[in-house]
Write a protein that binds this DNA or RNA. Structure first.
Lengths: 114, 114
DNA sequence: CAGCATCCAAGAAGATACTG
DNA sequence: CAGTATCTTCTTGGATGCTG
């Protein structure tokens, strides 16, 4: 999922790779949920932990860092005590909103049918 | 990605889970590409291997099996020699087309920008 | 509060060889 | 052609303890 270089060298087909590229950005184990919650507005670290009790501290950190690296999420550190860090969607990240919304709708519609 | 039972018990938030559920169906390493190619029409096993040289035989089998289990893909075995197996989207699978298309468009648009 | 470091277990994925 | 089986490697992820 992270081997952007090796992973996409394999597939010479220009029509196929965009889908895989998109999944590389949003397909992490928790990225979908995190992004979905960020649509509503900025969130703090422990806010995520409350919303999704299943995600560990470590995973939350890692997933947020990857989203940050991909330029999808902005990490704002407020220099104060106690520390406060806020995560929000970048403008680039906002371009993903239609996809996340569609996925949300699809999930809502078909979750019970499987 | 496969632990549908344990994975979703964790998250009590009904608004978040649909996204994760959708990703569980289409978020596998190769599922996006496979589904994308199936939009064009039915494909055979080795056809996929030609289109995506990066996917191993084993992975291709596993991913197709999971898509089949999820009712997204239909596997038609023609009883003949040499054997012929055709994979196609089910009606249920076709409901995913809008999502895949959006992901394709997004990937095409932003692939270079990262 | 928002993490990082370390260690360890479990699972995903690759390589290779073989089959109806 | 379309797989299966097995073995090994690599990556993910969880648990725990510590910090500015």
């Amino acid at each position: 999922m992270r081997d952007r270089n090796s992973g996409y060298g394999y597939c010479p087909n220009d029509e196929a790779c965009p889908v895989e590229y998109t999944l590389d950005v949003i397909g992490g184990k928790w990225k979908g949920v995190l992004l979905y919650h960020l649509i509503e507005g900025p969130k703090r670290f422990n806010e995520f932990r409350r919303i999704c009790p299943g995600v560990t501290q470590r995973m939350l950190t890692l997933q947020l860092r990857e989203l940050e690296e991909d330029g999808v999420v902005h990490r704002e550190v407020y220099k104060q005590v106690p520390p406060k860090v806020e995560y929000s969607l970048t403008d680039f990240g906002k371009t993903l909103i239609p996809i996340i919304s569609l996925m949300k709708n699809w999930g809502e519609t078909y979750k019970q049918s499987v």
